[in-house]
Amino acid sequence: MKSVVTTVVTAADAAGRFPSQNDLEAVQGNIQRAAARLEAAEKLAAGLDAVTREAGDACFNKYSYLKQPGEAGDSQVKVDKCYRDLGHYLRLINYCLVVGGTGPLDEWGIAGAREVYRSLGLPTGPYVEALTYTRDRACAPRDMSPQALNEFKSYLDYVINALS
């Protein structure tokens, strides 16, 4: 799993040297910024179910045709799966906030997503709509501090860009 510390250690190991001052500085910089992202991770974990529900509702409100026969959400089972997937994306964002990099999203969310959605005939537009709604709905200081919100939104943007 890629993070600042593992990147630094991998580089030092490839060169066969002890962690240098530069390596320690890099880790320290990461640690100093950690408070904001850990706050965002905590708030997101606490409200994960509510955020997922709101995001899913937003996308089915905008694309109400999705629930018509023959569309991607024509049965409750399929609708539930859409909410589940949104929950997965938000959970992976929580992981990214913990690690401090896009590793979890890259490895467990985005890699292969395009192929899966194509083969299942699923539109990615509704996911983008749901996550965009979450991004625009989140605000500081009601939900979290401005720095934490900034971290959270940057990962939401990352997923949105990957899906659109």
């Binding site: 799993m1 993070s3 510390v5 593992t6 992981y95 690690v99």
Partner: peptide, 11 residues
């Protein structure tokens, strides 16, 4: 390879 952060993510 994992660190303290990615260890908690994996579990």
């Amino acid at each position: 390879m994992l660190d303290a952060f990615s260890r908690s993510v994996v579990s």
